[in-house]
Computed example of a mutant assay.
Amino acid sequence: MNTENPTADHVATEARIKAEIAAHRASVRDVEARCKAAFLPLLIGHGITRVEIHYDGSGDEGMVGDVVAFADEQAAELPAILCDHYSVEFNGEIESRPMQLEDALSAFAENAVCDHHYGWENGEGAHGTIMIDVATGAVTLTHNERFIDYDTTEPEL
């Protein structure tokens, strides 16, 4: 294939792929906003000020761990209430379903990690934390990728 003078089909295909990627990214941001709009008022209403969600994975397997809530600096129980959870399905449609608040937060975290760090569970894997500052609505994803590194030296003896 000549990349210096691409054919019209190549240019059209590239444009279509870029448009599909942009549409998917927009859907992901829309879903993230919808999820936050669903769980933040519930957390505020129950005095939760911060939520931390840990994840870890490697060797083609990964999982979201405990969802830990805080009221100020004290650990707090999440209320056993329903929360709407939104997700982008494989067909690109946005789906909504009610689930327990803790499960909705866990699903939100898993979707966020997969959307922002695709393949995080493969190979040496990765681990991290999603921190939700309930008052500001800020969600911070701290992601740590694992990899094997080596340093080669070849001194002449």
Rank of each mutant, 00 (worst) to 15 (best):
L105C: 04
Y118I: 11
E89H: 03
T152E: 15
T49N: 00
T140V: 00
A107N: 13
I48W: 00
E95Q: 15
G123T: 05
E14P: 05
Y86Q: 11
R34T: 02
A38R: 07
T140M: 00
A69I: 08
E52A: 05
A109D: 08
C83Q: 08
I21D: 07
A15C: 04
A107V: 13
P98I: 01
H143D: 08
K36A: 02
A69N: 01
N111Q: 12
R16S: 09
G45D: 06
H54T: 02
A104P: 02
I94D: 01
F108C: 02
V31Q: 01
D56I: 11
E93N: 10
T7H: 07
E156G: 06
D60R: 04
F70S: 00
V28D: 01
D84Y: 07
F147G: 15
L43G: 01
A80W: 09
V31G: 08
D115C: 15
E89F: 03
A107G: 06
M131S: 10
A26E: 13
D72G: 09
E89W: 12
A37F: 09
T3W: 04
R146S: 15
V134D: 00
E14C: 11
V139A: 02
A12F: 13
Q100L: 14
G119K: 04
K18F: 06
A71D: 03
T136V: 11
M99Q: 14
P6A: 00
L40V: 00
K36M: 07
I48S: 06
H143E: 02
I130V: 00
E52H: 00
E156V: 08
L40I: 07
A109W: 01
A33M: 14
I130K: 01
G45E: 10
H117P: 06
I81H: 01
S96A: 11
T7W: 03
R34I: 10
A33G: 11
E4D: 14
E32R: 10
S58H: 13
G65K: 15
L157H: 14
V134M: 02
H46R: 06
E73Q: 09
E124Y: 06
E52W: 04
K36D: 11
L42F: 12
D66T: 09
L42E: 09
H117S: 13
F70V: 03
E124T: 04
P79N: 09
P6L: 12
E61R: 14
S87H: 10
T129P: 02
R34E: 03
H143F: 00
P6C: 01
L101A: 08
L157I: 15
P79G: 11
A12S: 07
H127V: 09
V68L: 08
L42G: 02
E93I: 14
L42Y: 14
L82V: 10
G59S: 03
D66K: 10
T152I: 15
A107S: 13
D115A: 13
C114P: 01
D103I: 14
C83H: 10
D149N: 07
F147E: 15
A75R: 13
G128S: 01
A109L: 00
V68P: 04
N5K: 10
D115S: 08
V31M: 07
A80F: 08
V28R: 03
K18W: 03
H127M: 12
T153C: 08
G57I: 07
V64I: 07
G47I: 05
A76E: 03
L82G: 12
E156T: 11
P79F: 11
L78Q: 03
Y150M: 12
T49A: 03
L105Q: 03
